[in-house]
């Protein structure tokens, strides 16, 4: 199959699925392994998040603007990858990752804290002045998140549904470039959301393939398409750590080219829970 027809023909395929008989639930014990592996993935990312946040917030407290600016995007990556789990704690998600649009009074709102409050200071005001309390708060919140997730039982439907949730994030706030409007590091978050979705997809792929091999092939192809476009915007293709160019540099044509496969992924992955018979 040509890459394009796979990408476009989702609606025809989706319609065929409409007439499918009720989906048999995948046996619960078949989910145990992938869920456990996913928890390891989340805990590993959390460990990284804690370490990177410590370095990032210390740079702010030390008044080191350059260093803080450099660490902003690579620190967030670990949060963006595990959002399906992190968002289970609505209070922390708000204080860690809310954007100014979430508040009536915008950047002046006293409840506006976390990464994006620091982003505003570091990249808009270009200063670490007055940011120390926010840095301290972020570190506490991230430690708190780490604690809470350690003892958490991961609900299968949240984990499996997380792949679609991450693509919805991308479709809603990353393609439009509103997530990191001051640092313009949107592509870092974009990649991290895609990484997180792919991780879930990979873990459940064998089970999904038993139900619908065409679905798996199509989703894999669309992930490949997104990865290929994102790769064009890496600072150094040989060194992923160097990250991405500013989102301002992404052409309108490429923003549109990203939107297509992202929306198809959101549409396709929205059926993953159903495919595995999860309620």
């Amino acid at each position: 199959m040509q890459p394009l027809s796979r990408w476009i023909s989702v609606s025809a395929l989706a319609l065929m699925a409409l007439n499918a008989p009720a989906q048999a639930a995948v046996p619960a014990d078949a989910l145990v392994g992938p869920i456990a592996e996913y928890k390891l993935y989340v805990l590993d990312n959390l460990e990284q998040l804690v370490a990177h946040t410590r370095e990032f917030t210390q740079a702010i407290e030390q008044g080191n603007l350059d260093k803080a600016q450099t660490l902003y995007a690579p620190t967030r990556v670990y949060y963006e990858r595990i959002e399906p789990i992190a968002e289970m704690f609505a209070d922390l998600d708000a204080s860690i990752d809310a954007r100014e649009d979430d508040y009536e009074h915008g950047v002046k709102d006293p409840d506006f804290t976390g990464f994006h409050r620091l982003e505003y200071g570091l990249f808009k005001a270009q200063s670490t002045q007055g940011l120390a309390p926010y840095a301290k708060g972020l570190m506490q919140d991230v430690d708190d998140l780490d604690q809470r997730v350690q003892g958490l039982t991961f609900p299968p439907s949240t984990v499996v549904g997380g792949a679609a949730a991450l693509m919805e994030e991308v479709a809603a706030t990353k393609v439009s470039g509103e997530e990191d409007r001051y640092s313009r590091s949107d592509l870092w978050d974009f990649q991290a959301n895609v990484d997180g979705a792919q991780e879930i997809f990979e873990l459940f792929k064998p089970l999904a393939a038993e139900e619908d091999a065409g679905f798996v092939k199509r989703v894999q192809g669309n992930f490949d398409d997104v990865e290929a476009i994102l790769a064009d915007y890496r600072v150094d293709p040989q060194d992923p750590k160097k990250g991405f160019v500013s989102y301002d540099k992404v052409s309108d044509a490429d923003r549109r080219a990203l939107t297509g496969p992202v929306n198809v992924l959101a549409e396709d992955l929205s059926t993953l829970r159903g495919l595995l018979g999860l309620n």
């Binding site: 989706a14 007439n19 989906q23 929205s270 829970r273 309620n279």
Partner: peptide, 12 residues
């Protein structure tokens, strides 16, 4: 009418 779908999927 739209075709029916297993309720564990998004509705068509």
């Amino acid at each position: 009418a739209y075709p029916q779908r297993d309720p564990r999927f998004p509705p068509p």
